[in-house]
Amino acid sequence: MDAPPATEPDTEGVRDGIIRTRALTKRYRGGQLAVDGLDLTVPAGSVFGFLGPNGSGKTTTIRMLMGLIEPTSGTARVLGQPMPRGTRAVLPHVGALIEGPALYGFLSGRDNLIRYDAADPTADPRTRRARVAAALDRVGLTAAGGKKAKAYSLGMKQRLGLAAALLQPRRLLVLDEPTNGLDPQGMREIRSLIRELASDGTTVFLSSHLLDEIEQVCTHAAVMAQGRLITQGAVADLAAGIRGRLVVTTPDTGDAARVLKEQGASDVTVEDDRVTAEPPDRDLAEVNAALVTAGVRVRGFGVERASLEDAFVALTGEGFDVAG
């Protein structure tokens, strides 16, 4: 494995991933292994979905990437710089929403943003008010900007958290469940905002448990379970990894099931007027012809493509219990 020196130029590191971790591991003091040998590569310009059940180590990973906690072993590079050592150089280019928004309840929404902006060493105080106003506008909070943050609803807090991440032009946005608590309208706006940011060249690292959301906005995804990375790659490839199922809709389910078995389909199941099966390794047109020849009245014939949800469940298991 190549081990480039810390002083390497910024762009060099970004070329092989705007975020890149190698054997990143975090063991908490109690002995609990939260993240175990993570090798994550987030390509520049991607919208990267970070998936995993609750307690799978997503947030711990994000905290290590943001320099909030120190890895037990392994390395994390963000924008080509090692973290947490490079926080001062890297983080001004990163907007983050980590584990939900956190606000000063006794300050107005606008003053919250002004405070966070004041904490950024690279933020120009002369443009602060204008940038805060623009960020509020971007998340649709202009009218509520003067209200005390403790009077905000969960969705409004979420929007304000996003606004804080958008105070400056960013190269990387790390968004941990950004649509949490938003109404459908808000979710839609956030999604289109993410697409818009991505088309400006911002890399978006999006952690979510809404698979639908990941499927709609993400180009790449990674799946974690129990602290380990199960898979990563382009979203299309992930879903394609799971074979679709052949679905025949017919009133003659018994005959259809028999013919499908004859044609080489496995795992044939019948529910109501639908017969589903693993498609056989032959031209499906011939399978359909065989059905019709056998006198099966076919209403519908096709392959249902696996959704990301199927892929996700196949990878992480059906179990509902949080891993201990």
Binding site: V14, R15, A44, A89, P92, H93
Partner: peptide, 23 residues
């Protein structure tokens, strides 16, 4: 969106496209 942004990201590395100068 998937197809679009994939093409984009391959065509131009982010290092050169619209990224602000280091502040």
């Amino acid at each position: 969106p998937r197809v679009d942004s994939q093409v984009e990201s391959q065509a131009e590395p982010v290092g050169s496209s619209g990224v602000p100068a280091p502040r």
